[in-house]
Design a protein around this nucleic acid. Structure first.
Length: 561
DNA sequence: CACGGGTGCGCG
DNA sequence: AAAGCGCGCACCCGTG
């Protein structure tokens, strides 16, 4: 059963059910209504944008089981090759295609809304006014899914994407348990005490030594051009200031320079300012953006949650009496490729063990490291180096898997669109790309035109090659998390709030963290494993590809792995 | 002074 | 050894 929510007059919400007349209620009454329906009917809530509807409910202590996020679903259906002939896909661009109007969380008042509308019809709020009703959009989406070439897959994708939106809001609400004390102790140990102004003492000492050793008194170590010039004056053959390149050089200034760069990164990206900005009340609360990446991966805005350095993960600490269950899907992307290609040889190589070890066991390559670099090369489109050289051997042992990514690459090189397992399609190349291609095939094309066009074609081919794997892996991860979320809810006593029982607190592409009461940690670890197996069946049916996950029960994220 | 491109590095 | 995919963010520096 669906219940559709739509903003009506200011401060009013229309509640629309298919089997009775719409009713209008005060916004303040919404949490109670939702709470009652969750108990009575467990409906699927249909709303424009989870980011605006769900946080107030969570703040009121109300959790919902299922939803349809119309904004995210629209983006998928609009672009998917599976629903390309639907009315939704064929309609001219409308306000549901414009992400900007939905960025605005607050409900505009009718006065400002109509004033702006009259003044400038292109403003964000004016477009909100022109937004077709959620009910009409929902009907169009249901039609697009039903008439698609793969309704089952698309409906699963939309459900998983919407579940992801709920999870993102819940993770922000709950926050990642984070110890300011531990983080501060780490910073103080590595950088010295927090400075009132200027650089931390230990970084300042390194700068002094660096200026001395390179005989450049005013050197700004944060300026790559200045550092490069100073190194060259000191007789070094550096061509950049990248750490991996500097490590090859032999000079007394190199160790302090590398040390400075490492500390400087920590200080600017995850220093005290970051701590003040993003950690409050013992919780790290980044802003997750489900569907924020073209492939369907999540992005974040602010806080750099998806780049939390390994060196600070010791500051992620469970509450007293609680545990962190840190779970990680092993070799996810190669296993996804295995399922996409239906490659039984690769499935056998990965059954019940490390996939790369299994590839070695087939005799295709000699060492695990080679198996890994060859697989990554196949999925990323490496042509040179060790990885490129290993490709023929991989192709001989696993022809189906390699053919799948090669076909995806060729489609992209020709300007085509590729589609993930459940139906997320890649964007078509832009106008600049198409112009380059037609310029190169024109009568007066120069060799430079042709070189550029070929290079861009290959670039786009590498993108589409990786897209099918990365996007399908993102779908697997959403299915995994959605199932896990349901099982965690079952481990929470009825009527209790989200954070009273085990709940998701972190997600990183192929890894999740659950914050769990200690006594439920074993059950959570089992749920993590079972959910992974279910996700594999949802994507690939009976095809026998394993999705093993490691689940570590720890007090601190730093202890996992 | 704001903006945008380039560089470098963190994550998967 | 530093290519080959997807990101976010801080910082520098040239431009308007």
């Amino acid at each position: 059963m669906h219940i559709l929510l739509e903003r009506a007059a200011p401060g009013r919400v229309a509640v629309i059910r298919h089997d009775r007349d719409a009713v209008e209620i005060e916004e303040a009454e919404l949490p109670e209504l939702v709470r009652a329906e969750e108990v009575a009917a467990r409906p699927r809530w249909v709303w424009s944008d989870t980011r605006t509807w769900y946080p107030p409910l969570l703040r009121a202590g109300v959790r919902v089981e299922r939803c349809v996020d119309l904004r995210l679903s629209h983006a998928i259906l609009r672009a998917s090759t599976l629903s390309a002939r639907s009315g939704l896909a064929l309609a001219p661009p409308g306000s549901w295609d414009d992400a900007a109007h939905l960025e605005e969380a607050p409900v505009p008042t009718s006065a400002t809304l109509f004033d702006l509308d009259a003044a400038d019809s292109t403003t964000t709020r004016a477009q909100t006014a022109a937004l077709p009703s959620a009910a009409a959009e929902f009907a169009a989406q249901q039609d697009a899914a039903a008439t698609s070439t793969e309704p089952g897959r698309l409906r699963l994708l939309l459900a998983a994407e919407s579940a992801g939106a709920l999870i993102a809001a819940e993770m922000r609400h709950a926050g990642l348990p984070y110890s300011v004390e531990r983080h501060d102790a780490l910073l103080t140990q590595l950088l010295g005490p927090r400075p009132r102004y200027g650089r931390p003492a230990i970084m300042e000492e390194l700068v002094t030594r660096l200026r001395d050793l390179l005989e450049t008194p005013g050197l700004n170590p944060d300026s790559p051009p200045e550092v490069l010039k100073a190194l060259q004056r000191a007789g070094l053959m550096a061509t950049s200031t990248r750490s991996w390149e500097l490590r090859e050089l032999d000079h007394p200034a190199i160790p302090p320079l590398l040390r400075y760069k490492k500390l400087s990164r920590l200080y600017s990206a995850n220093g005290w300012v970051w701590l003040d900005t993003w950690v409050a009340d013992g919780r790290f609360r980044p802003d997750y953006l489900p569907g924020g990446v073209v492939t369907g991966r999540w992005a974040t805005r602010g806080g750099g949650a998806l780049q939390l350095p390994k060196e600070v993960r010791g500051a992620v600490v469970a509450d007293p009496g609680w545990k962190l269950v840190v779970a990680d899907a092993a070799q996810l992307e190669p296993r996804i490729l295995t399922g996409l290609a239906g490659d039984t040889a690769m499935a056998a190589a990965g059954r019940g063990r490390d996939l790369y070890a299994g590839i070695v066991a087939t005799g295709a390559v000699a060492e695990r490291a080679q198996a890994k670099v060859a697989m990554l090369g196949a999925m990323y489109g490496a042509t040179t180096g060790d990885s490129g050289r290993l490709m023929p051997r991989l192709a001989r042992a696993f022809p189906r898997a390699v053919r799948l990514v090669e076909d995806a690459a060729r489609t992209g090189e020709n300007g085509g669109v590729v589609t993930s397992r459940l139906g997320r399609s890649s964007p078509p190349p832009g106008a600049g790309w198409r112009n380059s291609q037609s310029a190169a095939s024109g009568a007066e094309s120069t060799p430079a035109d042709e070189r550029r066009a070929r290079s861009q074609a290959r670039d786009w081919g590498r993108f589409t090659r990786n897209f099918v794997v990365q996007a399908s892996a993102a779908e697997w991860a959403l299915c995994w998390m959605a199932e896990l979320r349901n099982r965690l809810a079952e481990l929470t006593p009825a009527g209790e709030s989200l954070t009273a029982g085990p709940h998701l607190v972190y997600f990183l592409h192929d890894e999740v963290i659950v914050h769990a009461p200690a006594e439920s940690a074993d059950a959570v670890a089992a749920a993590v494993t079972e959910s992974a197996a279910l996700a594999g069946r949802l994507l690939f049916g009976g095809f026998p590809v394993d999705f093993p996950v490691t689940a570590a029960i720890v007090d601190s994220y730093g202890e996992a792995k």
